[in-house]
Nucleic acid binder design. Structure first.
Lengths: 346, 346
DNA sequence: TTGTACGCGTTATCAT
DNA sequence: ATGATAACGCGTACAA
């Protein structure tokens, strides 16, 4: 009576369930905890009453005592770029299956990680944090967050066993890019390409810088000399204009390796619709990521693939392993790339 | 000493700050609450100590007593489809600016809203819930969530003042689609199109059904007869195949209105790369949404625009108004559409 | 297996 | 303006 009216809304609490089911409040708690010992029939009765009362345990209250928020913070500069949105999609699905919710944070468009944002996020006590942003060191992340061990996606030159560095702890997903890049260059070389350009991504992004580094290594090993570096920023529009500028100067480039697929689309459209060049006859183009749009007929892009499912599975493994053993030394997972051949080389 | 070692990690609490700053714990709380009355110099000292100790108020603990989680649940079937990812991006940015974090949930791919998912989400006590999914009634949403008043995006035929319906409360964002659709048909008609097809979206999506309804109205008003309905599901691949089937049958369609831009891309690619037809000479094409990809040169799509910023601002307004007055009757905001003319009609 | 008592970190209330 | 105390909803050590 009075208890029902005094409550702001019809939110049921564990006490309400206990009262109706005529058990103690602790029993209700145990009914919702699979590991607790409680007589099965008692649990069933409690769960039934809970459903009738539309009761759900309060995650916030629970996390206060269990020190587990079941929240995973995901930090991205742009949710709307295809690669990132596809990764967030897959990640959210996988996390949901494991009982975690995705807490999404956006950095500013200049990709400078705001320490205010981190402070803000810290208040939510995420169990784990995945940083896609390229320009925040794991040191800073680890310093600001306390409970969570951040996961950092890195693109090492070589597959090496890194020494366990002193300082703040963080887990790593290493993406070895060499395989796919080597296959891409080999394919273009095999079809007669000689003068290569690299359409870069954001100059602050380690993904782009490491791609360039590996590209140089691979080309040198194949006796192909230095690639021409074309600055860009992962976006379609910049790639489009950069390509036009490149050919206005008239450099006789016959192969363009783009740091990402969206950039490659800009290259293709500039070549075909602005410069009147044919792909792959006049210029060969390869992208990076293999986003869903890359198989669209207007592009039909040959590209270096990062397997999204594999990548997400590795991230989830890292999260679960870390939560199971919070004090373990730095963890890491490794994935590789491979070339997907379509119509822009040949 | 003992208090420092006993703590699992270096997580500082309000008590720690209070001790170091030599004030009461309540003062620390007030220092972080802008509305609280506290001597400015005292607040400054507390904030300084807090920063030294790397202290941030715990949102979970706070929400327990304030009944505000500062969480907004966003439910989508696919994060990775361009329109939705762009909306989530803008929404997250806007919410972050208002002090809310985005809690992301994915429904299953068959778009059937899982009641288990809702129960799961309820545990987080979101202050508001935005449902993009088309096949969950606000009744169900409102029944399962208790504290939050859900926001439902609807596509009414006409701009009418709906009577305040009895039953569960929910707020609405009404998207009036007529203007843009009428402009699109007028433009195509003006350029000589006579036989129209509607490439539908997901058959369960009210957005698609309402677009079809308005399209029929508009065409009838213009003496254009019935459109040919082509079933699809918002995706590129289905639109591509559906378009090929449509012309294999040989129906002499000279204008296609697609339920969304991605579908229109599939139409364009099928027409040009598979059927050898020219756009806009042989067939005129109009899309819906005006996603970022629509201005890409390969598509250069004429499309009905839903202004994303305007839409997100309306959503945020709804959230803030509802939180300021939890017991207000159903709120609603209205936005309109307009045609963006590019190269696929003319 | 069951229940009592306590603590998680914070804010609201009510004194002063 | 300030501080003591009582919640908020839940999990768990401990005793029974």
């Amino acid at each position: 009576m009075s208890e029902a009216t005094s409550r702001a809304r019809n939110r049921a609490t564990a006490d309400d369930v206990a009262r109706v089911a005529e058990v103690s409040r602790v029993a209700v708690s145990r009914a919702f905890n699979p590991h607790a010992s409680i007589k099965p029939e008692k649990r069933d009765r409690i769960l039934k009453v809970a459903q009738e009362l539309n009761y759900t345990p309060d995650v916030a209250a629970r996390s206060l005592v269990t020190r587990r928020s079941h929240l995973v913070g995901v930090i991205v500069p742009d949710v709307c770029s295809p690669w990132e949105s596809q990764e967030i999609d897959a990640l959210t699905t996988a996390l949901q299956a494991e009982g975690f919710a995705t807490l999404l944070f956006k950095t500013r468009t200049d990709r400078s990680m705001d320490s205010q944002l981190l402070t803000y996020m810290k208040g939510y006590n995420p169990d784990s944090v995945i940083a896609f942003t390229e320009n925040v060191g794991p040191e800073i992340l680890g310093q600001i967050l306390d409970r969570a061990v951040p996961i950092y996606v890195s693109y090492p030159h070589e597959e090496t066993i890194e020494p366990i560095a002193p300082g703040p702890r963080f887990d790593r997903l290493d993406v070895i890019q060499r395989d796919g890049i080597d296959q891409a260059i080999a394919l273009m070389q095999g079809f007669g390409a000689r003068r290569f350009a690299y359409l870069a991504g954001d100059p602050h992004a380690s993904a782009s810088l490491e791609r360039e580094y590996v590209l140089r290594q691979v080309m040198a090993a194949r006796g192909l000399g230095e690639p021409l570096i074309v600055p860009s920023d992962f976006t379609y529009d910049t790639a489009y204009r950069a390509t036009i500028d490149l050919f206005r100067i008239g450099d006789g480039v016959d192969a363009i390796f783009a740091a990402n697929d969206v950039g490659a689309f800009g290259v293709l459209d500039a070549l075909r619709h602005e410069l009147g060049l044919k792909v792959p006859q006049d210029v060969k183009v390869v992208g990076f990521d293999d986003i869903a749009q890359s198989h669209w007929k207007s592009y039909d892009l040959t590209t270096v693939r990062i397997d999204l499912d594999e990548r997400v599975r590795a991230l989830v493994r890292l999260i679960l392993r870390r939560l199971k053993n919070p004090d373990a030394p730095a963890l890491s997972e490794t994935i590789r790339t491979k070339l997907v051949v379509r119509g822009t080389v040949g």
